Amino acid sequence: MLGGFELTDATDVPELGSFLFTVRDMHGEHDEAILVRCADPEAAPPEGAVLDSVEADDADGDDDSSEPLAVEAWINRCPHEDQRLDRGQGAAMRDGQVICPKHGSMFDSCSGYCDNGEAKGTNLVPLDLEIEDGVVYLTDDDYRLVGAGGIDDDDDGPSSTSHIGF
Rank of each mutant, 00 (worst) to 15 (best):
E118H: 09
E118Y: 08
E118A: 06
E118G: 02
A119Q: 03
A119Y: 00
A119M: 02
K120V: 13
K120S: 14
K120Y: 13
K120P: 05
G121M: 05
G121T: 02
G121E: 11
G121C: 06
G121W: 09
G121P: 10
G121R: 06
G121H: 10
G121Y: 13
G121D: 14
G121S: 15
T122I: 02
T122Q: 14
T122G: 10
T122D: 09
N123P: 10
N123H: 15
N123Y: 15
N123W: 12
N123D: 15
N123S: 15
N123R: 14
L124V: 00
L124P: 00
L124D: 07
L124H: 04
V125P: 09
V125A: 13
V125G: 05
P126T: 04
P126E: 07
P126Q: 06
P126D: 03
P126L: 02
P126K: 04
P126F: 03
L127I: 01
L127E: 05
L127R: 01
L127V: 07
D128N: 09
D128I: 05
D128F: 08
D128P: 06
D128T: 12
L129C: 10
L129E: 00
L129Y: 06
L129H: 04
E130M: 08
E130Y: 11
E130G: 13
E130N: 13
E130L: 10
E130K: 14
E130H: 12
I131S: 04
I131T: 02
I131D: 00
I131P: 00
I131V: 12
E132W: 11
E132K: 10
E132F: 08
E132A: 14
E132M: 08
D133H: 13
D133A: 14
G134L: 00
G134N: 11
G134S: 03
G134K: 01
G134F: 01
V135G: 14
V135W: 08
V135I: 15
V135S: 04
V136G: 02
Y137K: 10
Y137Q: 07
Y137T: 05
Y137D: 05
L138C: 05
L138W: 07
L138M: 07
T139A: 06
T139W: 09
T139G: 03
T139F: 01
T139S: 08
D140P: 05
D140S: 07
D140E: 10
D140R: 02
D140V: 02
D140Y: 06
D140I: 03
D141Q: 08
D141L: 14
D142W: 07
D142N: 13
D142R: 13
D142I: 02
D142S: 12
Y143V: 03
Y143I: 03
Y143N: 06
R144F: 13
R144I: 11
R144P: 10
R144V: 10
R144G: 14
L145Y: 08
L145N: 00
L145R: 02
L145A: 12
V146Q: 03
G147Y: 08
G147W: 01
G147S: 05
A148M: 12
A148I: 07
A148L: 06
A148D: 09
A148T: 13
G149C: 05
G149F: 11
G149S: 01
G149W: 06
G149H: 03
G149R: 12
